[in-house]
Design a protein around this nucleic acid. Structure first.
Length: 272
DNA sequence: AGTGCGACCCGAACGC
DNA sequence: TGCGTTCGGGTCGCAC
């Protein structure tokens, strides 16, 4: 599932492939995923071009100069570049055709992804964007900031790491990996998290996401006809999806539990 | 305000 | 060509 590293990889790849091509047609096959006005969506996009692609947390920001197309991939959203004559596949929901005969197609098996087309001067005021917390590489993400966010919380740290208003960009996989690298038990209450824990969380997040972006970058090169990003980071996972397998540090068996409804993997010995 | 939980989706995994 | 049920996962919105 796309977390910050996958979204960043998609951003980098799309930037090389779709900028400055005029949009000549838009097909909306699943209208519910468009949060803004459907009619405007088509009318505004046609005739314009993407001049840049940015990212805030897990949101992609397609810059159309005077408008921005916000795109969240949620669970399984993917972008593909195809020739416009190729058959439309089952889960392709939004088709954007350029004047060179290529299509940018949004594919989403679960239909959880969302798009929102807004005036550029307004996009930072869109609620979903405005409430994003600091990203792992932001210099504003300090141990003091985190400690302050966690200190009055009764929720387990695993749940707090998934809260995009505190740290922006972590998902279920990285949250488990960050906690393992930081040697923190996922059930530890926010109010029990120390400043040292916070410093460890920040350092681990940076290290893990940097590595994950490198792996995403590696994978993308093997794709010639599409932009499907599956990532090769799974080869580096220490705990996630490794239930009953030995901890790579101490050999204890990795446990899987539910934390506020989310599958959570951890080493009971390394993460007391 | 903080917290908990169902809804949104549908393919995969599972039970029989 | 087996069929029905359960599960998962990011985020929102509603209930408490």
């Amino acid at each position: 599932m796309p977390e910050i590293a996958e979204v960043e990889t998609v951003r980098n790849t799309l930037k090389q492939r779709i900028l400055h091509k005029k949009i000549v047609n838009v097909e909306i096959l699943y209208p519910k995923m468009i949060e803004s006005d459907i009619k405007d969506f088509k009318n505004i996009l046609i005739g314009r071009e993407f001049i840049d692609i940015g990212r805030i947390g897990k949101w992609l920001i397609f810059d159309l100069n005077d408008y921005c197309l916000l795109s969240h991939l949620r669970m399984e959203g993917k972008y593909f570049l195809k020739n416009k004559d190729e058959k439309i596949e089952k889960h392709e929901h939004i088709i954007i055709t350029f004047n060179d005969g290529s299509d940018l197609r949004y594919h989403d098996t679960r239909k959880f992804g969302r798009m929102n087309l807004v005036k550029k001067e307004d996009y930072l005021n869109v609620e979903a964007i405005k409430k994003q917390g600091y990203e792992p590489f932001s210099e504003k993400l300090t141990p003091e900031y985190l400690l302050n966010k966690f200190k009055n919380k009764q929720l387990p740290i695993k749940t707090l790491l998934l809260d995009q208003t505190i740290i922006s960009g972590l998902g279920n996989i990285y949250a488990d990996e960050v906690l393992f690298a930081s040697r923190i038990n996922p059930l530890k209450k926010g109010s029990d998290i120390t400043k040292e824990d916070c410093a460890n969380i920040i350092e681990s997040s940076k290290k893990i996401i940097k590595k994950a972006i490198e792996m995403g970058g590696t994978t993308i090169k093997s794709y010639t006809s599409s932009l499907g990003v599956t990532g090769r980071f799974q080869a580096y996972l220490q705990v996630h999806k490794r239930e009953n397998e030995p901890c790579l540090v101490c050999g204890s068996l990795i446990k899987r539990i539910k934390v506020n409804g989310r599958s959570t993997y951890f080493c009971p010995k390394c993460q007391k």
